[in-house]
Write a protein that binds this DNA or RNA. Structure first.
Lengths: 212, 212
DNA sequence: CATTTATTTAAACCAATCGGTCGAATCTCC
DNA sequence: GGAGATTCGACCGATTGGTTTAAATAAATG
């Protein structure tokens, strides 16, 4: 984790360094990302870099830590407060927030994707795994809470539902990014609401009866 | 596209070369994939490689072409045949097939993912884009047909529905791979059916009434 | 068998890039 | 002006990149 001196830099400078690095890492992986290119892009000299970080792995770990702080949703939310009546409105709000966050920082999903075949360098793999396991766990707990209060179907494992939801949501998000200006604002809003309704229908108990 | 001589090789040899290359490309991208490592893994000498391919880009294009042939589903299916009664059973069958195919060749999704920031080399980007646009188009036509016969809701764009479905499906597939032995066979089967039912509910028209 | 043609091999190539080091230059503040 | 903090970029050895080449082997041809 970055040398203490790093904390004394401008908040904005730190943000710029970490986010630019995050973009590189998320696009090319840990070993694939080039320190040289990154420093070019940052207009930062080698010497300065090694003044603030031990090495490449150190930078990566710092980036993951930063990503964790950014991605962490509403820390003020207590799962215990959620009952059947507020569960869905809350989750819809959360999804809106997350969408906005991922929308402005797309590298978050790229980083998360690094977890399938993770880097091999020393503490790097562990740092990654730990943080993102926490995120997954949080999402899963949320869904489990939904099951407990009857807002989410209980006949499928919570982690399966989580996977389906997140998968659809990421795809949906990409679609919205790509098609932002194909429709007018009202239509986008309508589509967005319908999509959230679809997510909800994915997780709720299915209608009891249906003819095959 | 590979030299003509390449076609005279064992079918199995060709398959091995192209699939190993596909794994590399899908994991590290076009520039990220190392020809040297690939040849090591293949126990193939440099000379032999350049005897069959012009260069790295040529290999890549050949791989994409091969992937396209593999991924192409049921070419004997005529969209015109699908009416409201057979649409869903057919699509469920198709999804099973595709799942099996992607399951044994996970690099297919990796290759597809290369389309977000695509390689820059000469004909490479175009080759990629063309083939995978065809796949997307095919899926989208299918959904549009579903809309036409009333099996799929028509109040959302077909490509949006496609994106959501494929996103959820890929995530679900990964979940099944990772949790294969957590449940017994019957349970897996049940889960799988429920998940397909969820996909169906994502695309069908929502129930007319619901209390907020 | 001889000779041509197809295929494979291993080494060499050279440019580029990698992460990392270092000593000197510059800045900041007393 | 002196001392510590910070910045700089040339430089390092090592590795890797994709590609070429000349010679060895195998297959085919007459």
């Amino acid at each position: 984790m970055a040398r203490p001196r790093f904390e004394k830099l401008d908040l904005e400078t730190r943000r710029r360094i970490l986010e630019t690095a995050a973009v590189e890492f998320s696009a090319r992986g840990f070993e694939g990302a080039s320190l040289n290119q990154l420093l070019d892009r940052l207009d930062l000299s080698k010497g300065s870099f090694y003044y603030y970080f031990d090495d490449k792995a150190d930078l990566f770990i710092t980036v993951v830590d930063y990503a964790w702080k950014v991605m962490l949703p509403a820390e003020d939310l207590d799962l215990g407060d959620l009952d059947a009546t507020v569960f869905w409105p809350t989750l819809e709000l959360l999804m809106r927030e997350t969408r906005a966050r991922v929308h402005e920082k797309p590298w978050l999903v790229g980083l998360a994707r690094l977890m399938y075949d993770p880097p091999e360098a020393a503490g790097v793999r562990e740092a990654l795994a730990e943080k993102f396991a926490e995120v997954r766990q949080w999402q899963e707990d949320l869904i489990r809470r939904g099951q407990h209060v009857g807002a989410v179907r209980s006949d499928l494992p919570a982690d399966l539902l989580r996977a389906l939801l997140v998968g659809a949501d990421e795809a949906g998000d990409q679609w919205f990014v790509a098609n932002w200006n194909r429709f007018d604002e009202d239509e986008i809003e309508r589509l967005s609401e319908e999509v959230v309704a679809i997510y909800r229908r994915m997780l709720e108990a299915p209608p009891a009866e249906r003819k095959s």
